[in-house]
């Protein structure tokens, strides 16, 4: 988790306006508040988590990214972050479009379904993968649209979304993703982090 926070923090310029979509209990918000910018908001669907955030004095709105991002004016944030939640939406494409409207830049992190440990489980055990990063069983997972680093990379190029930076994370090892190492990074990393712009 800390590595992901560090990478996200490094992608953000100081004293900018940030929105964390699906901010959970506000851990990333707190981290960024201490390290990068005071001007940070959150959107979260779970009442309990929203109350947790508000209790810490974080500015969070209870809401659903699929319906409630519309209320923010165009480009009203310098960065919008979507950390490991894209796969949980009914319509990830719509959410990405909304994020790109609201934010000048968007940071999306993706639990990589193409990671070799995930692939091996399906290949050898013949069961839906359960890993440290994807801890749910098939029958209770909130994840509706799992994708791989390569899927998201291809999605961006099909939809003409500019990728500013793409970073692969394996344990705590950080590396850049590019066209030529895409297949390898897609196999070898558990998390992909993308800085994109429409």
């Amino acid at each position: 988790m800390k590595e992901e926070f560090n990478i996200i923090s490094n992608l953000i310029e100081e004293n900018t306006r940030v929105l964390d979509v699906g901010c959970g209990n506000g851990d990333l918000m707190k981290f960024l508040q201490e390290n990068k910018t005071k001007d940070i908001r959150g959107l979260e669907i779970s009442k309990e988590k929203v109350q947790n955030c508000l209790s810490k004095g974080l500015t969070v709105i209870e809401g659903n990214a699929e319906s409630d991002l519309k209320q923010f004016p165009k480009s009203s944030f310098d960065y919008v972050i979507l950390s490991q939640t894209l796969q949980a939406f009914l319509n990830p494409e719509l959410v990405i479009n909304e994020l790109l409207k609201v934010g000048k830049k968007v940071i999306v992190t993706i639990p990589n379904f193409g990671y070799w440990r995930v692939r091996l489980q399906l290949l050898f055990k013949g069961t839906m993968p359960v890993t440290e990063n994807l801890p749910h069983e098939w029958y209770n997972t909130p994840n509706l649209h799992m994708c791989t680093i390569k899927d998201f990379y291809n999605f961006c190029s099909t939809k003409n979304i500019k990728i500013y930076k793409s970073i692969a994370l394996k344990k705590s090892r950080i590396s850049e993703i590019n066209k030529s190492n895409l297949n390898y990074k897609n196999l070898d990393s558990h998390l992909g982090i993308f800085l994109i712009e429409s």
């Binding site: 908001r41 508000l54 500015t59 709105i61 209870e62 004016p73 009203s76």
Partner: peptide
Amino acid sequence: IVIALNSVGADVGFVEIE
């Protein structure tokens, strides 16, 4: 109210309590 505040970039938190 929250939507109106957001549309002018005001600093607003919101929760619906059960």
